[in-house]
Design a protein around this nucleic acid. Sequence first.
DNA 1: AAATCCCGCAACCGCCAGGAC
DNA 2: CGTCCTGGCGGTTGCGGGATT
Length: 234
Amino acid sequence: MVVTKEGIRKGPWTEQEDLQLVCFVSLFGERRWDFIAKVSGLKRTGKSCRLRWVNYLHPGLKRGRITPQEERLILELHSQWGNRWSRIARRLPGRTDNEIKNYWRTHMRKMAQERKKSSPLSSSTCSSESEQLEEAVGMEKHEQSSYMMTRALDIKEEDEVLKVYPMDQIWNEIAGTLESTTSGLSFERYGQEACNISCNSASMPSPLWQNCAESLWKIDDDDDDVDLGIDIES
DNA sequence: AAATCCCGCAACCGCCAGGAC
DNA sequence: CGTCCTGGCGGTTGCGGGATT
């Protein structure tokens, strides 16, 4: 853990920080990250708080491996939109842009390597890794796109089967102590005690969670008409 | 058993767009 | 209209842990 001259902490988040952030996001919502960063007493930037929330703490997040269906969807969407990770992520409920980005990098690298192995001659014609990657992706796309589209609709069902994610422990801890502080919170009060972490007295209004979870993964209508509707028909 | 390599992922950085003033 | 602030996005880095030698 690094602390900068300005007293800003960097590096991995501690469990305590996570709890603290969860508390304050529950109070203020997923906005005003700079404000949350200040008020919470976390010595983090607003950006850092937002990132931590979006990529790790959000209750709607799915954990575990990318499924074959998701993989195909990623391939298809990437072929349409390129590296628009956040946009792609909106199509994959519970997945974050960061996760998809990471997945893409590692798996496409793997694919490129395998391809290189299987056809060593072709490597001489490729001047860069990125070109190889694109080639590999193109290959995947043609093989799988139509199948993927029919499978894409199944993903939602699969989501329901899933999967305990690590934050459950935290949610459980918090949920157990909810009622005591959910009503009558004032700024002064939570500042002093609501997030007096160990968070045993943390407030965690569950309806808000449901709201958040739904809203974050709500598909952006503007983006939608571009793609799936069309492709599903084909 | 130790050293090295490789992969997955969390986190940071820089840039940009949109909104408030 | 210009400036500042905030949040979102894509790219990149670095660490931890498992696999391999």
